Amino acid sequence: MFDGAHFPLGPFVPYEGNPILRPRGGSWESTNLYNPAALVDGDEVVLLYRAHAEDIVSHVGLARSSDGFHFEREEEPILSPSEDYEVYGCEDPRIALIDGTYYLTYTGWDRRSAQLCLATSTDLHTWTKHGPLFADFDTFATMDPRGRNWSKAGVIVPAQMQGVWWMYFGEGAIYWATSDDLIHWTPGTPDSEPMYTPTPGSFDAGLVEIGTSPVLTDNGLLLMLTNGATSHVHDDGSSGVDYRCGQIVIDPDDPTTVLARMQVPWLQPQTFEDLHGLVSNVTFVEGLVKFRGRWLAYYGQSDTTLAVAVHDPAHPWGSALRA
């Protein structure tokens, strides 16, 4: 885990060269490219991103960058649907590196159930799939029950707490699970008892979803970026969603309790790409790295393009007082 973070982490400024990755024609990633996991590998930033063609069957691709902004993509996806539970997509990856093994959580989509799945690798190219992690679990149970398995989004804490491994997961509400081996996971509570739920009247009043793997703050808390949504009314009177990005912190000594949350989003739709796309009005973060002294948060723009926002610790909050 990266250290030296403060809560709230930021401010983040969207990169002026966004989008940094777009779909490219005639291939498996020809129509939409978004929602990346991120990690630092030596002197490079690596993105594992979701993309698809017009069939909207998602695969996971890999891109590398020496500066965090300009990426070279591999021609073929590194993870593609091969099983019944993911026949229509391997979606929304998050990643953790623990003792030389990469643990990739992703959503397996069969056009009925969105299930949190796990795959492992030692080289980012050859993957062993371990299947859906949670049977008969609905992370919308307390809000708008799906009536079937639904357990999108999961981040693994890359260090043990209280002698076991921890994962935070869920779309709708956020839950926790523990493991002895990083492969088999047991939810700590039934789906009717989430640890974190939407906040009425706020930017995440409709749903909350875990965003990025945790980083360690300077006072020992775990900080995670989150995604939240509310309903949105368009100018023509139609309704849709509005996804914005928040933050939460957790005490490792009490890992099932959210100590604090940002009251306002640190990132929200504002550019053309943020406001227009396959699912409009969306900034959706899944990757966070500290690279060359700066924090880089990678996010999807309206499920169509991929962008980055930058926090330079040399430019903290409170600029008005320093003027």
Rank of each mutant, 00 (worst) to 15 (best):
Gly170Gln: 05
Ile248Arg: 09
Cys245Arg: 01
Asp181Tyr: 07
Gly188Arg: 07
Asp242Asn: 14
Ile250Gly: 09
Val241Leu: 14
Tyr243Lys: 10
Pro190Ala: 08
His232Phe: 14
Thr226Phe: 09
Pro190Arg: 08
Gly237Arg: 09
Pro265Trp: 08
Asn219Phe: 01
Leu225Lys: 02
Tyr243Phe: 11
Gly240Phe: 05
Ala177Glu: 00
Asp254Cys: 05
Ser192Asp: 13
Ala177Ser: 14
Ala173Arg: 11
Asp236Asn: 15
Pro198Leu: 12
Thr217Cys: 02
Thr230Met: 07
Leu259Lys: 07
Asp181Cys: 04
Val241Pro: 00
Leu223Lys: 04
Gln263Phe: 03
Thr212Phe: 08
Pro200Asn: 12
Pro265Ile: 10
Glu209Gln: 10
Leu221Cys: 03
Ala260Trp: 08
Val233Met: 14
Cys245Pro: 02
Pro187Glu: 00
Gly211Met: 07
Tyr243Leu: 11
Ser231Glu: 11
Asn219Lys: 11
Thr226Gln: 05
Asp218Met: 10
Trp266Leu: 15
Phe203Gln: 03
Pro200Met: 11
Gln247Tyr: 06
Leu207Lys: 12
Thr257Leu: 06
Pro198Trp: 10
Leu221Gln: 13
Leu223Met: 08
Thr256Leu: 05
Ser202Thr: 15
Cys245Glu: 15
Val215Lys: 04
Phe203His: 02
Gly188Tyr: 08
Ala205Cys: 14
Asp242Ile: 00
Gly201Cys: 07
Ile250Ala: 07
Leu207Trp: 07
Met262His: 01
Gly240Arg: 02
Gly201Tyr: 11
Ala260Ile: 04
Tyr196Met: 13
Leu267His: 01
Leu267Ser: 08
Gly240Ala: 08
Thr257Ala: 07
Asp254Ala: 14
Gly170Arg: 08
Val233Ile: 15
Thr178Ala: 13
Leu182Cys: 13
Pro200Arg: 09
Gly228Tyr: 06
Asn219Val: 12
Val264Asn: 02
Ser239Val: 15
Thr189Tyr: 14
Glu193Tyr: 03
Pro190Asp: 13
Glu209Met: 08
Asp204Lys: 04
Gly228Asn: 05
Ile174Cys: 08
Met195Pro: 04
Trp176Val: 04
Pro194Tyr: 06
Thr257Cys: 05
Met195Leu: 15
Ile210Lys: 01
Ile174Tyr: 09
Val208Met: 07
Glu209Tyr: 01
Gly206Met: 08
Pro255Leu: 06
Asp235Trp: 06
Arg261Met: 05
Arg261Tyr: 03
His234Arg: 15
Asp191Ser: 04
Leu216Trp: 10
Ile174Phe: 11
His234Gln: 10
Thr199Pro: 00
Thr256Asn: 05
Thr197Ile: 12
Ala177Pro: 06
Asp251Ser: 00
Gly246Asp: 04
Asp251Thr: 00
Pro265Ala: 10
Thr189Ser: 14
Asp181Thr: 06
Gly188Glu: 06
Ile174Met: 12
His232Asn: 07
Thr230Gly: 09
Val233Ala: 12
Val249Asn: 01
Glu193Ala: 15
Pro198Ala: 11
Leu225Met: 15
Asp180Met: 06
Glu171Lys: 10
Gly246Pro: 05
Ala177Lys: 00
Leu182Glu: 05
Gly211Val: 05
Leu223Gln: 04
Thr189Arg: 15
Pro265Leu: 09
Cys245Thr: 13
Trp176Glu: 03
Thr212Val: 06
Ile210Ser: 02
Leu221Pro: 00
Leu221Arg: 13
Ile183Arg: 03
Val233Gly: 09
